[in-house]
Amino acid sequence: MTDELYCGHTSCAGCPATIAIRSIMKAAGKDVIISNATSCSEIISTPYPLSSWPVPYIHVAFECAPAVAGGIEAAQKKLERTAKIIVLAGDGSTYDIGLQSLSGMVDRGHDVLYICYDNECYSNTGVQRSSATPFAAWTTTSPNGEKSIGNKTFKKPVAEMMIAQGAVYVATSSIGYPKDIQEKVKKALSIKGPKFLLIHAPCPLAWKFDASKTVEIAKIAVETGMWAMYEYCDEKRTISIEPLFKPVSEYFRLQGRFKHITDKEISQTQEHIKKYWDRLKKY
């Protein structure tokens, strides 16, 4: 049993969500309330009548965890309670169905830390494409075939959207770097207002790699520049880990979801990475 997330939860072997949760909870402490969106993290941790959560926890639906958190914050003001409030959601609820609710939470300035663990698809429902799915990746709803290379779009820049909207603290991290997650959670919780933390979370089931490789793949994503690690606070961006810009093919070849891609998609992605980083350095 660990203090961060009680054992007995039902996650898959090599699950990145539980690595993220344990890092988050280690940093957040016990004076915290969790508003969880429907996701793997919910399903693995709260099968009635059991719970793996050592802190107050609420799950309502897929797309409304930020609004629930806003309601908690409003109630706490009236009750003169000061527990920190954290939203925990996957990329489906963050990039897609709950984006409006997240935007509303940031707009109203709720003192909430929103954390998305991004496994780049709807893993919980059996690996369907989300707007976090990378270009050319296979999912069950973006299959590759004679007339398709897989997913047709690049990832939605959701963290940059939160910066544009004026969240007081925006950061990206990765389950490959648990200490980085802890530092960012601690820093975020020390700032009042709406905060956003996006954590890269390679999923063995969805990305088709061996369960022992979760952390390795997370690190390669950062080393190739596929995943940026940064903080944005006080109008300033700080890169947490400078990428080595290893060839992106090193990242692709470890994952079954990219097994079908050709040099064309590799160079398109390489170009996308360059543009993305140019933009990051600029703003």
Binding site: C64, A67, G71, A74, G104
Partner: peptide
């Protein structure tokens, strides 16, 4: 606390969160 939420979905979500907090 008067919350001008961005949708009715969030209106009910906020009520649920607040009521659950007590």
């Amino acid at each position: 606390e008067y919350m001008t939420v961005e949708s009715e979905h969030s209106a009910m979500a906020a009520c649920i969160g607040a009521q659950a907090t007590g």
